[in-house]
Design a binder for these strands. Structure first.
Lengths: 249, 249
DNA sequence: GGTCGCTCTTGATGCAGGTCAACGATTCGG
DNA sequence: CCGAATCGTTGACCTGCATCAAGAGCGACC
C-alpha cells in the first residue's frame, strides 16, 4: 500500500530506455545513447499499483520520479482533511520538480504503472554534467508553471461548468500530445478526484457532467471514458474559444 | 502608459550590478564579476511608473525581466473581464519564466520601479554559456511552482478568512526574506488587486480585513500598510500552524 | 486648498454551489 | 457469480460569498 515495490531487475541493464514508450514525452527524450546510459545507471525502476503512495507531503524529499506508465495524482491537504489536487501526471511527466527539503505534496497512483526513480543527490550531479537535461527540465518547469497559472485562473474565477469544460479540454489536449484521439478521453480518476482538482464537490461535478451529457456536448462511454461530441461547444463553455485551434482539426 | 521607457544610460556601463540592491535576492546573485559583466552587457535597464504595462497577455514573448525595484502585478484575464492575479513581484523576482511563444499573462507596475530587460534569444544564449545561472533559474522555477501549488490550495479549498490570513502571512515571509520586519507590512496593491489575487471580491476582502482589525490580529497604520499584532493568531487563521516557525521569532 | 474621482467600507439581498440524504451503479474480492 | 463496499447520481435545502447600493475617506491635480 504505502511502499513502492522496486521491481524490474532494470537498474543498470542495457537499453531499458530504448524500449521506453514514455521517452518521447519525457525530459530524457533530449538525450542520446551515452546520456541515456548514464541516466539509466542512476535510475531505480519501480512499479506501483492503485493507491500506492509514491511520496508523502512533509517527508524529506529524497527522490525524484519520471513516470513511465500509468497515472498519478498529486495533492495537498489541509489539517482538517480538505484536499486540493494540484495535478494529474501521466507517462513522460516529471515528479518532484517543485521540491525543497521536504515534499510539499503527496503523490499517489491512480492505477498500476511504473516510474524511473532517482535519488535527488544523484540527479543533481547528473544535471551538472548534462546541461541539455537541465535545459529540458527548465523547459518542463516553464510549462508546468504556465499550467499552474491557468489552474489559478480556473480556481479563482471560473464557474463550475467552466471548470469542468476546461478540465475536459485539458485532458483532450493531453491525449492529443500523447498521440491519441482528442475526442476519446479516458478518465482514470474518480469524480471525487476531479472535484478536488477543480475546487468543487463530487455532487457539482456529477450535476454538470449530466448537463454536458444532456446537451449532447459529451457522451459517456463508460464510467471512466467519454467522447467529446461537440468540441466547439465544449471550448465555448470552457471560456476559451480564442484558442479555437485544437480538437476541431 | 503602455510603453516602458528605456531609462538609465546603463546598458554596457560598468558595475551597475555592483550597486544593485536586488542582486542579493536575484538569480544573478550566483554570478561573480565576469558573469555579471556579460549578463549586464545584454541587459536593458528600464524604469517604469504606476500603471505601466511591462508585457501583455497574448503578445509575442520577446523579453524577460529581472525586477530591480518596485512592485509588479502579474495577471490573466477572461474574455468578459474577470481577472486572476497570479502573482505579485518585488525586487529580485524574475518575470517571464513561464513563457512559450506568447505571453500567457500581463504584467503591470503597481508603482514606480525598475528592471533589467533581456531579449529572450540573448538570454537563452547566455544560459547555455552559464550553467550556474541556468541552475539558479531552475531553482527559482521550483520555488515558484511550489508557491503556485500553495495558491491552488488556497483558491480551491480555503475560506475567505483563511485566504486573507494566508496572504498576509505570505507578505510577512517575503518581507523577512527581503531583510525587513516581518510584522510591518507594506500593501502596495489595492483591495481590488488583493481580491483578484485571492479569488474574492473587494467587499469580502474589506469585510475580513475589518474582522482581523476588530479582533486585534492586525492594526492598520495607513491604507497601504499594517502591522501584525498577533502573528500566532494569524497563522492559525491561515490554516497553517504546522509551520509555526516564522514571524514568532 | 478645494474639488473631483477613485478607493474603501458597510449594509441589504440574492444565488451558485455546498451540504445532507437517499438510492442506483459499479467494482472487486472470494 | 455473489455480496459488500465504494462510487456516482439526483433531490431538497442551506450558507458563504457575490452582488447591488450608498456613503465615507483619501489623494491628486489644477
Amino acid at each position: 500500500m504505502t511502499a513502492t515495490t522496486t521491481a524490474c531487475s532494470g537498474a543498470g541493464t542495457t537499453d531499458v530506455c530504448a524500449g521506453c514508450s514514455a521517452r518521447r514525452l519525457s525530459v530524457c527524450g533530449v538525450l542520446e545513447q551515452e546520456g541515456l546510459r548514464r541516466l539509466n545507471a542512476a535510475a531505480d525502476h519501480v512499479s506501483f499499483s492503485a493507491g500506492d503512495i509514491l511520496l508523502r507531503e512533509g517527508d524529506p524529499a529524497t527522490h525524484l520520479f519520471n513516470i513511465t506508465s500509468g497515472d498519478v495524482r498529486v495533492h495537498k491537504l489541509l489539517s482538517d482533511g480538505r484536499r486540493q489536487i494540484v495535478g494529474f501526471l501521466s507517462p513522460g511527466d516529471f515528479l518532484g520538480l517543485a521540491t525543497g527539503d521536504r515534499y510539499a505534496f503527496s503523490a499517489e497512483a491512480l492505477g498500476p504503472g511504473s516510474a524511473c526513480r532517482f535519488r535527488k543527490v544523484d540527479y543533481r550531479k547528473i544535471l551538472r554534467e548534462m546541461p541539455e537535461l537541465e535545459h529540458a527540465l527548465l523547459d518542463r518547469a516553464a510549462h508546468e508553471l504556465k499550467a499552474a497559472h491557468d489552474q489559478m485562473l480556473l480556481l479563482g474565477r471560473k464557474t463550475a461548468m467552466e471548470r469542468l469544460a476546461s478540465f475536459l479540454v485539458g485532458l483532450s489536449e493531453r491525449a492529443l500530445r500523447a498521440g491519441g484521439d482528442g475526442r476519446l478521453l479516458a478518465l482514470p480518476m474518480t469524480r471525487a478526484e476531479i472535484a478536488d482538482y477543480l475546487g468543487l464537490t463530487t455532487e457539482t461535478v456529477s450535476r454538470n457532467t449530466t448537463r454536458l451529457k444532456t446537451r449532447g456536448v459529451i457522451r459517456l462511454l463508460s464510467m471512466h471514458s467519454l467522447s467529446i461530441e461537440r468540441p466547439g461547444e465544449l471550448l465555448h463553455l470552457a471560456g476559451l474559444e480564442a484558442e479555437a485551434e485544437e480538437i476541431c482539426a
